[in-house]
Write a protein that binds this DNA or RNA. Sequence first.
DNA 1: CCAAAAGTGTTACCCGTACACCCATGG
DNA 2: CCATGGGTGTACGGGTAACACTTTTGG
Lengths: 238, 238
Amino acid sequence: MSDMLKFPQDDTDFNVALSMSLVLFGFDGSQLQLLLTRSKREPFKDALFLPSRYLEAQDELALSARSMFHGLFGYDDPEIIEQLKAFGGVFRHPFGRVINIAFYALVRKEDFLAEKWEHHGMQWSPVDRVPDLAFDHNEIVKYARERLKRRVKRRPVGFQLLPDEFTLGQLQTLYEQALGKTFDKRNFRKKLFKSPLLHDLERKATGGETGQHKGSQLYAFERERYQRMKNEGYDFLF
Amino acid sequence: MSDMLKFPQDDTDFNVALSMSLVLFGFDGSQLQLLLTRSKREPFKDALFLPSRYLEAQDELALSARSMFHGLFGYDDPEIIEQLKAFGGVFRHPFGRVINIAFYALVRKEDFLAEKWEHHGMQWSPVDRVPDLAFDHNEIVKYARERLKRRVKRRPVGFQLLPDEFTLGQLQTLYEQALGKTFDKRNFRKKLFKSPLLHDLERKATGGETGQHKGSQLYAFERERYQRMKNEGYDFLF
DNA sequence: CCAAAAGTGTTACCCGTACACCCATGG
DNA sequence: CCATGGGTGTACGGGTAACACTTTTGG
């Protein structure tokens, strides 16, 4: 019971290191993907793992995540990044305990600053074929995929994962990948047209560019409208 | 970009302290409540806050939460306690950075070891009248209430919050408190009887003991049945 | 005796689901 | 010309939501 009252008494109580990892989901039109990087040092030399950083004691958690995100994508936004939870207890550094706080974000693959990062071993990997990762990062990825499933049901995640113009086929594939099941085309469309968030661009893609045959209708998300509606209490539900 | 690769270089990088807080929800038959304790020292002397502890570097996060829980309730169970997330950046101790990792659990108020703890300033407080708390604990409580809302929809939380025998009125009040809305009595009952988890004890409470007038039917949850069904993929949905 | 909560069924509507065929085009 | 994905409507069933009155008993 006295431990309820225990406070750090001196600086020997400040002996834990913090790290932060980003789980970044992207979508290439047919597959959900995950950004991974390659470790250059022991104890996991050459293993893949999530983009990660050790934090200084003064680093704000969310700000550190945003700044790392900015480095990778060239922009950032407080709404994009969300904390998952703290992971502890698996990897211990020779100098002591490390707590990893994981964040997640949904991004557009094409925003990734590939030229800048690819030669550092950064690469996209399909989420259903994620290899063994260093540390406990497979566990983090698993947790993040569950979170994504829940978010897909309650937020229009297409906003974040798809380019400005997209087809309903791509949108459906995205939902199928994220939730791990397939949907009936007609029902899927009906469902999404119930919410007034899809703007018909009244233009068709020529088939070739999206790998289709018959060119398909292009849509955009009504970003501002969604923001306004959200402020008025609108609740997206897939 | 080099910060992507930064590892702790020596023990001066291990300079963060960890703390852990529990958000414990209970229910007294008519109100959702929260367990709070009173700070005995600066910088928040006499303020209320969540039961909390500083962690040693070697403490496992989940095990520490369980052990504190055990101290308060005399039992514990890995399934009860769930991590919320890490909260950082608000309170900084004179000696350095403190990261607080919050956990939450749903408990039966009557299991609380009141005799042991009440004279330490521990007390239940109705969730809709939580006072200003020390540190960033109001933020943690807010986050925990959102989590509870989601859990109520997907898990039979009555299991954890109600005593072995309870009435449908109590159960409904619990759902109304947790979700912040009211329900039609008949629809509520239909909905809950769809799942086979309520066992009719074929006994009525005498009105007086539960503060009612007309005595009402007593029910129990089918614990084992729920466990079995869950293993077979059953998904509770309110 | 009255205030307070218990208990009980029916109806209307909405939403989710199942289901099959023709069309346009790239190769 | 054919393989591939695009595009379209209907019917059924289940679930949710709205709704009002009688019963019991504590005080």
